[in-house]
Write a protein that binds this DNA or RNA. Sequence first.
DNA 1: CTACCTGCAAATTATTTGCCTTAAC
DNA 2: GTTAAGGCAAATAATTTGCAGGTAG
Lengths: 142, 142
Amino acid sequence: MAAKEHEVLENYITQHNLKITKQRRAVLEAFLASEEHVSAEDLYKIVSVKEPKIGLATVYRTLSLLTESGLAAELDFGDGQKRYEHNYEHDHHDHMICTQCGKIIEFHNPLIEKLQEDVAREHGFEITTHKLDMFGICKDCR
Amino acid sequence: MAAKEHEVLENYITQHNLKITKQRRAVLEAFLASEEHVSAEDLYKIVSVKEPKIGLATVYRTLSLLTESGLAAELDFGDGQKRYEHNYEHDHHDHMICTQCGKIIEFHNPLIEKLQEDVAREHGFEITTHKLDMFGICKDCR
DNA sequence: CTACCTGCAAATTATTTGCCTTAAC
DNA sequence: GTTAAGGCAAATAATTTGCAGGTAG
């Protein structure tokens, strides 16, 4: 599957007359190996080990590339920092965020999604994407 | 109702050994008179008319106060700017955001909320707040 | 009079950009 | 060889903070 994801990025890159570089490969590598919900700073630290000369700006630029190519999705939990999660052949899911320990539980509920579509239709609204975040206390922190 | 909201703020202020100032009153006034979803900058511009000496920092500080006292709620539509909406004796609602014209449609769907509670319970998670934002195209822009 | 509050400017934080050098293709 | 990419430092943008003087209680 990692192979597939490399392909996705390389296809995107060649289709847009861009170039495959060792920095881009390193960021992709680190992103694929990372847990969900990494920040640019997180990735920068990880990549810096193998690629000490890399600049934070390059990480940001590569993350845009990953997002545009469909490999990554941006998250914003309202703490002033963007996170990124795997988005390739991953089903859509939403998040429960524990405000105590920071743990993030993912879930997917088709019925909720269906109701969203219903509400949207009632308003003549066509949903492109949506985001459902529930903040609270997880079972380990209660 | 505006009277009630003034009381809420004044109670909060006196209970916390804070002071009622004309700046705070002016920001509250502007906030109450404002449309939903104002940014700090929006309010600053409005308040500046009546109170030309006010500083942007004061608006930010007062908005925190309004949020803490329960009159305002922070919103974040991911465009790098916080918005504020009325939160006092207003029912919870979610948002549909038109990515074309920027219009925001509010809605409330008890069944969706119930399902959220159900999902949370399955995970031993206790919801404090939640946020459901649907991005897409509104009926006027289709 | 004693905090707290204000305005202002400077600091912070996350992210973006400009620019010149370097490396893909 | 072109042309895009990278590194670095400077620029943004929204928000926060420090401080010295002002004001509410």
